[in-house]
């Protein structure tokens, strides 16, 4: 049994890492908003999904204009991801304006903000669904494949315990782009003036506003960055997995949230780590659950696995692996 698990390990690591970096970037969107507003932005998963669709739209338009064959794929990809990221970033700012800012002004209870975010997520899902269905007749969209060159790692020769692993060119693209995004975000938050303002607002909104920080603008910027990263990840998801539908955001959003909680919510580096770890754990479970339980449980339980991790973390270490425990004061 152990030998079998070991054999699959390289492939599991590659698949898990791909999924993990996707979770990591989406988790950052949750964690940034939570850090500043103490609000679970349920709509974030659907912002990610909208990003994937916007990427598909731009890609189809460029294909229609003949750019895809004329230009190298990498440049097309960069244009697509930048346009999709800016569009979803603006969408995120719009969502904050329409749904959260009025509530903040009214000092409404947190429960209400959660409910509007659920509403926004529904509206996004259905709006994307009917636009896609109107244009293509089917809401499941298959994107034109890019970077589908297959690589083969011949690891079996070096270490005979392992089987060979394969991956697509898109895996490299996903990995490199997400790492660039994560590093630049980390630099942005820790080294720039805007990043400092963000951290100040997260720490204490009222005091920050006394220090001449425009709190509303900082919140808008946070939403822009979080949503733009989410949208860009959506494009990566589309390129890696090929088919997208309006309902991919929901379950992925919850798992990304799990990743954010795992790393300690409000903590950006923690969210990155949590995302990668959750991706690896999930792929490991999907590949080996049926071997470990002798066929009693199959890969279909991998979602349950993620939720159980979430519940366990919240019970035993609610502040997450890297978070600080906060005592609620009267």
């Amino acid at each position: 049994m152990l030998a079998h698990i070991l054999q699959n390990l390289p492939q599991v690591l590659i698949d898990g890492l791909t999924l993990g970096v996707v979770y990591a970037v989406v988790a950052i969107g949750y964690t940034m908003v939570y850090g500043i507003l103490e609000l679970i932005n349920f709509a974030h998963g659907d912002v990610f999904m909208t990003g994937a669709f916007m990427g598909a739209v731009v890609l189809f338009i460029m294909m229609g204009l003949g750019f895809l064959s004329a230009m190298p794929a990498l440049i097309v990809f960069l244009i697509v991801i930048v346009i999709a990221a800016i569009a979803t970033g603006l969408l995120g700012v719009g969502i904050e304006r329409v749904a959260y800012r009025p509530l903040r002004r009214k000092n409404a209870p947190k429960l209400i903000a959660l409910i509007t975010s659920i509403g926004i997520s529904f509206v996004l899902e259905d709006a994307v669904r009917f636009i896609a269905e109107l244009k293509t007749g089917n809401y499941i969209v298959t994107a034109p494949s890019m970077f589908n060159h297959k690589f083969n790692i011949d690891i079996h020769h070096v270490i005979p315990y392992f089987n060979n692993a394969t991956f697509q060119g898109s895996f490299l693209v996903v990995l490199i782009v997400t790492i660039v995004m994560l590093v630049s975000l980390d630099l942005f938050v820790n080294k720039t003036k805007w990043g400092m303002a963000m951290r100040a607002v997260a720490q204490d909104r009222d005091t920050a506003s006394l220090m001449t920080i425009n709190v509303n603008r900082v919140i808008s910027v946070t939403f822009f960055i979080g949503s733009a990263l989410g949208g860009a990840t959506g494009v990566l998801f589309m390129i890696q997995y090929g088919t997208i539908d309006p309902y991919i955001g929901f379950i992925l959003g919850i798992k990304a949230f799990t990743a954010a909680v795992l790393g300690g919510i409000g903590n950006i580096r923690g969210a990155m780590f949590g995302g990668v770890m959750l991706g690896l754990l999930e792929m490991f479970a999907a590949a080996n659950l049926s071997i470990i339980t002798h066929g009693a449980m199959g890969a279909e339980y991998k979602d349950v696995f993620a939720f159980i991790i979430l519940i366990l973390v919240l019970i035993f270490k609610p502040e997450g692996l890297f978070g600080k425990a906060v005592v609620e004061k009267v």
Binding site: A99, I112, A113, T116, G119, I120, S121, D126
Partner: peptide, 13 residues
């Protein structure tokens, strides 16, 4: 989804 999503938002706001 759209209708009930809008209802949620409008009533919450």
């Amino acid at each position: 989804l759209l209708i009930f999503g809008l209802l949620l938002i409008i009533f919450a706001l």
